[in-house]
Amino acid sequence: MPNILCNDLCKTYRQGDAVIKALDHVTLEIEPGDFICLSGPSGSGKTTLLNMIGGLDELDRGEISIDGQRVDQLSKGPLADLRLHHIGFVFQAYNLIPVLSARENVEFVMQVQGVPARERRRKSMAILKEVGLDGLEDRRPAQLSGGQQQRVAVARAIVSQPKLVLADEPTANLDSVSATHLMELFRELNQNHGVTFLISTHDERVMRYARRLIRMQDGKVISDEIQKSV
């Protein structure tokens, strides 16, 4: 049974008088534990597809189910629960909460989940060390560089080991060493913990990590292939 099923997804946006087809009859199956990269030019629909699967936006048409549950039919509350317990997000523009420290940002999701304080602290410190931010845990986002902020965002997305991580251009603001380190971390989580990754990227280095590469253009899937040289 597929982990994620996207069937005939359609989404249009209006920009003035123009109608932009962000998703144009996209159908996709994602197996549990898959490691997928979405590539394509800007405006090809990668981010829209991630937002739809994560329940951040509403479809015009089509259906999405995760573990058999129709995401597109959930109301705001249950959608928030789904994101909280099953999905980790990494956004292109870091998106940290500026009034919280790096550690508190990482702990935020666990706090909402109700994880006990001691366990939260242990996990957040470990993951921050893992992403190379040991010693910077008490800094606010404004006191961190772009790359450090992105690593905090990644740590936040994976700290509670969600079933699915949706990452939108996660390496866009990272140097090559940090990008490699991040992708190694993703791969480790994928291989050892079975976390499913769906990553949109332009970065060829990131694509090399994908087991499956989906190319999009004008809101359509133009190729979907398994890579042999992972």
Partner: peptide, 16 residues
Amino acid sequence: VREIGLMQALGMNPSA
């Protein structure tokens, strides 16, 4: 607004 959207994306309920 952006941070509120982020909190919702991370799973915080609208009521919270």
